Computed example of a mutant assay.
Amino acid sequence: MTEYRVAAVFDLFLLLVAVLTPLAGATLAAVLLPKRGRRARLALAGCLVSLLNILVTHGLMLATGPLMKVFGIALAHTVISAVSMPIHIIGFGLLLAGALTGPPQTPAPAPAPALAPPSAPASPSALASAPNAAPTQAPTPTSGTGEK
């Protein structure tokens, strides 16, 4: 009889973890609701649906005896799975929608054009050979006499 008690305590521990996990997720989503908006609402709904799935599944497991009488031993587990699977998929889908949807991505600004390296001053012969070059005057040397 001792092994049954150990199994029962371990089953209660697993049930406690299974119930506390979506409760912690729902609490976190509720705290982040003002900051995250729609994403937090989807995550909160997903956590609550997952909690509902755990409660429904364990409720049906408590009713395994009547289910076996109605559907037989082989189909009782299938009935429990058939009831809990759609609830699980909906909860998981809501959690994914809350995690993967986000604000629209704004395109990154275009990078600034690279500056061209400074070019060397053109020689007078290069300027004269350019067809569309503007006429330039050669600098006039100033005398060092200080005339005004």
Rank of each mutant, 00 (worst) to 15 (best):
F13T: 10
L42G: 00
P109G: 07
A138E: 04
V79R: 00
S84F: 07
I89P: 00
L42A: 15
A76R: 10
A76L: 03
P141N: 08
A122R: 09
P86K: 07
L44F: 15
A30H: 11
L15A: 13
A7H: 09
P34F: 06
L12K: 12
A120Y: 03
A99C: 08
P22Q: 03
L100V: 12
T101G: 02
C47A: 15
A114G: 05
P86G: 14
T142R: 13
G102M: 03
A134S: 12
T142I: 04
L115C: 02
A97R: 15
L42Q: 09
S119L: 12
P103W: 09
L33H: 09
A138P: 07
P104S: 05
G72E: 05
P131H: 06
A74T: 10
V83S: 05
R5G: 15
F71W: 14
P139E: 05
G46M: 04
A99D: 06
L23R: 15
A76N: 12
A45D: 00
R38I: 02
V31Y: 11
L55K: 01
A7Y: 09
G46L: 07
P86N: 09
A63V: 05
R36K: 06
P107D: 07
I90G: 06
T57E: 15
I87C: 08
R39K: 00
V56H: 02
G91V: 10
T64L: 11
C47S: 15
Q105W: 08
V49W: 01
N132A: 11
M61R: 04
T78S: 11
M85H: 03
V9F: 07
D11P: 00
P66Q: 08
F71G: 05
L62F: 14
A130S: 10
A120G: 12
T2S: 11
P139K: 13
P103Y: 04
L115W: 03
P118R: 09
A74P: 04
A40N: 12
K35M: 09
V6Y: 13
I54A: 15
N53H: 08
A26Q: 04
G37Y: 06
A130W: 15
A97K: 13
S119K: 14
M68K: 14
A30P: 00
I89R: 01
A18F: 12
G72R: 08
A120N: 03
Q105A: 10
A29H: 00
L94P: 11
L16A: 15
I73F: 08
T21F: 03
A24M: 02
P135Y: 10
S50Q: 11
S81W: 13
I90L: 14
S81Y: 12
A128M: 11
V17K: 00
A43H: 01
F92Q: 06
T106G: 02
H88T: 09
P124M: 07
I54N: 02
L33S: 09
P104E: 08
A29R: 00
G37P: 05
F13K: 01
E3T: 05
T101Q: 09
T64G: 08
R5M: 13
L60A: 09
M68V: 12
S123G: 13
L48F: 03
T142Y: 01
P131K: 04
M85L: 14
A8H: 04
I90A: 15
F71H: 08
L96M: 14
